[in-house]
Every structure is written in C-alpha cells, then in structure tokens.
Design a protein around this nucleic acid. Structure first.
Lengths: 242, 242
DNA sequence: GAGTGGTCTAGACCACAGA
DNA sequence: CTGTGGTCTAGACCACTCT
C-alpha cells in the first residue's frame, strides 16, 4: 500500500502517522516482539518523509510502545522480566536492591461473577464474569506480598490455575494477546487483617502498605485490578520523580 | 560569542549542546523564568544548525528544564504552584481530586548540627550544619500530613521561621537560588507514634503512610530530606506508570 | 558489504503571540 | 507586521549488526 495519510484533520503529520502505527499494533498487525519495516519502507508506506516518520517512531519509543536498536531494527515492545522489573515492579529492599519475586504460591483461583466494586473498577457491566486470583509472592525467601488480582473473564478465555506463572503480564500478552501498557497505583497504609496476618506471618493490626493498581491495555481498556499488600519492614515502594 | 562546541569528544553534537545549556542554567547565566535566546541565536552561538539546536532544546524540554511556548519563546523552568501540584505532590483524595495543602502550621524550626543519619542522607560531612523544620499541612480543612524537613544550612543562609511559605520549593528557588529538579521517594507503612497521634489526631499505633523523599538540585546535589506521614483514611498516594 | 537506525544540515513553510 | 517556536522535507554521512 502506497498511500498518503487519510484523515488529514488530525494535527501534525507525524502525530497522524503515530496514531496509524498505534492502531496497527493494537489490531495485532505487528505483534509484540516483531520487527517493524525499516524507516524507509514505512516512510514510503505512509507517504511521508523519513524525517517525519522518524518523529513518529521517536514518539512511540518515548511511550515505550517500540524499542529501537541501531543496526538491527525497530521492534514492538514486549513484556520481559527485565521490563517488568524496571517498569512495573516498584518494591525494593531497604538496601536499595530490587528484584522480582522468584517464587509465588497461588492461594485461590476462581471464575465467578464480579461484585459491584470489581465490575465498576474494571469498567465492566454489572455482574460480568471475572477471574479472581489470590497469591503470595516471596522476596528474599520469605512470603512478603499478598496479592488479590481480578481480571475480566472475557479477555482471558480458558485461564485456569495451572497456567499461572510468576510473570503475569507476559502470560497475558503471549497467551491471550492482551498487552498491559500503563497503570495507575494508589497507595495507602492499612492494618493487617486475619488473611494478611496468616499469609504474611505478621501480627494482627500491624501496618501494611497497600498498593491498588488498575492496569490498562494499549487502547485504554482496564484489564486488571490488582491489590498488593506488603508485609515486610525491610522493603518499601520506590517512586522516582523526574 | 560565535564559537563551535568545545570538547568534541562527548557523543552527539546535540547532546554536547544540551550539556552546555544545562551548565549555563546551573551557573545561573539563565535564571528560572528567564526567556532563552531564540533558536536561531542559540544555533549561531553554539555553531550548529537550527535542527541540531532544536534537538538539544527538545531534550531539555523532555527533562522539564525548559518550557517552550510557540510564538513566545523558550523559558527556563520555574517552580510554580501548578508544577508543584502536578509534579511533586502525589497525595490525592479518594474521590480523585488533588490539591495542594492550603494551610500549614510550623511546629519547630531549628538550626543545629546534623545527626549521622541526616548528614549521610544529604551527602554532607559529619556534623554539618542543617536546618530542621517540622510542620503540619492541612487538606480539606483537617491536619493530615506531618512533615519533617532537613536541609543543609550552607545552601540556605539566613533561613528563619518567618520565611516559611506553603510552597517551599518556590522559596528555595527564589530566595536562595536552589532549584529542586528531581527526587526519589520511598514509601512504607508505619504505626503512629506519640507525635503523629498528637498532631494528626489519630489513635496511637494506627497505620500511617510514610513518604521519605530525597530531593536534588539540577547538578545532583541532595538539597532536602523530607519525611511526610499521612494520617488520613480519605487520601492516598498516586503513582502513574506509563 | 548490505541494511539498519542515528546524526546533522539547509531551507521552506505554518501557527501563534505580541507590539 | 515581525519574531518566535512547530512542522516537513531531501539528502548526506556515520555507527552499528549481521551475514
């Protein structure tokens, strides 16, 4: 297809090209991990100069939608343990070290209809079907994070409890074609209840850090509601302000 | 001065130009709020093309070091309540609204020698002089945040307790030429002690969110160590992952 | 060596702000 | 109207990767 950009009413050319490429990724025409065509090919395809196309790619790069490697090509961003650690996992040891939980234990896994709160949070119709996971994640050999995870059943057909690896987002992407792109986290302090005390081995009512995360796909659809409770005095949540 | 970039050994041209401009801002040749020379003037000054200079400005813009306005010019970023709210203040109401504390009450303000922990955290020699503030900030008309603030006395000569406005970073910048540029925050849950219970009106041992922030100037010098304790069930800390 | 992304340039034109 | 930043182009050359 050698055709100029269609709807010319959408602001700067490079932004329009960017949107077209986002759409191509959302539709799955380019899959995570795939190499995109070269800059020259894309420029020809979209009927713009290489410089303009480059600006579109720069924008996608800045949004972590693609990764570029000089001499190799441009690739659709994929969830790897590395990216998970640097981008989506914010718990660090007080000594400054950060590492993904090496092991985790699934506590519950059920398919059921969502509560009002769950459906509301995930922007689903009332009583929509959801999958509900509970697990405990270990850090430094100790159970430290109690996670409560709710996802829309529609997005993850056939998800069952043998499938659950440590890296959920990689599973979402590779197993179900659902790419988590951004998330908003709300943090507060809570007092440990019975469940937290039992699973994390902390006293009742001891202060816990609660991280409430709503994660979205590329097109802004809420895809996961995760509530993590941290029961360790040797770890904290790190937030960098640049 | 019409002179090409000096030390040509520092990677891409635009990066070298960027560093020179950062240096000019750090030295105070361009002050926060000032307009920079036009792109053409700067391009001539540094002996590069307008496109290259533009890339340097784009990088400074991305790092929040300058702000650009079409038709008006490029300005050195300055601390305003707006920027404070959007960039450095992360506490929001559970209803999603975010606003800067309208009022605050200074509890203590003393100049003294820093403890080992304080000097270590601020990268100061042992027993260096510091200024130590304690204050309570209000949200929605209620005292909600107890803040403990430690700054190097050397950076803030003559800082006394009449000077303390609500927006500290604006004061640092305008009153002392110290521009806070980035920060790292560490969050954990703690149990309220006597001080927190008294000042925030919460029960002893109730869970509080503690935000430990180390803020740096443009050149990476630690300039403030702030510990905030949040004593409200109607507020939380917001972290966006993009 | 062939192909990729990365840098740099020079120049044209557009959109916006302010005198 | 003038000056500013914003967009777009075309082409040259460099740096890196892989075969």
């Amino acid at each position: 297809m050698t055709r100029a950009v269609p709807h010319s009413g959408g602001g700067p050319l490079y932004a329009q090209v960017r949107e077209l490429m986002v759409a191509a990724i959302v539709e799955g025409r380019w899959q995570p991990g795939d190499a995109l065509p070269s800059e020259n090919q894309l420029a020809a395809e979209y009927g713009v100069s290489q410089g303009t196309l480059r600006k579109a790619l720069d924008a996608l790069d800045a949004d972590n939608l693609v990764v570029r490697h000089q001499g190799r090509g441009t690739f659709v961003a994929a969830h790897t343990p590395q990216r998970e650690l640097f981008h989506f996992f914010h718990i660090a040891g007080d000594d400054g070290t950060k590492q993904l939980p090496a092991t985790s234990r699934l506590v519950t896994c059920e398919r059921r209809r969502g509560t009002a709160a769950e459906c509301g949070r995930l922007d689903l119709p009332a009583s929509a079907r959801i999958v509900h996971l509970t697990r405990v994640r270990d850090l430094g050999g100790r159970p430290v994070i109690l996670e409560n995870i709710v996802v829309p059943a529609r997005l993850f057909p056939g998800l069952v409890d043998d499938d659950i690896p440590n890296e959920l987002y990689q599973l979402y992407e590779e197993g179900f074609g659902v790419t988590i792109h951004r998330a908003v986290e709300h943090l507060r302090a809570i007092a440990a209840g019975r469940d937290e005390a039992r699973h994390l081995g902390v006293p009742l009512k001891s202060p816990l850090l609660e991280v409430d995360r709503l994660a979205e796909t590329l097109d802004g659809t809420p895809a996961e509601w995760r509530t993590s409770r941290l029961g360790s005095n040797d770890h904290h949540y790190v937030s960098e302000i640049d």
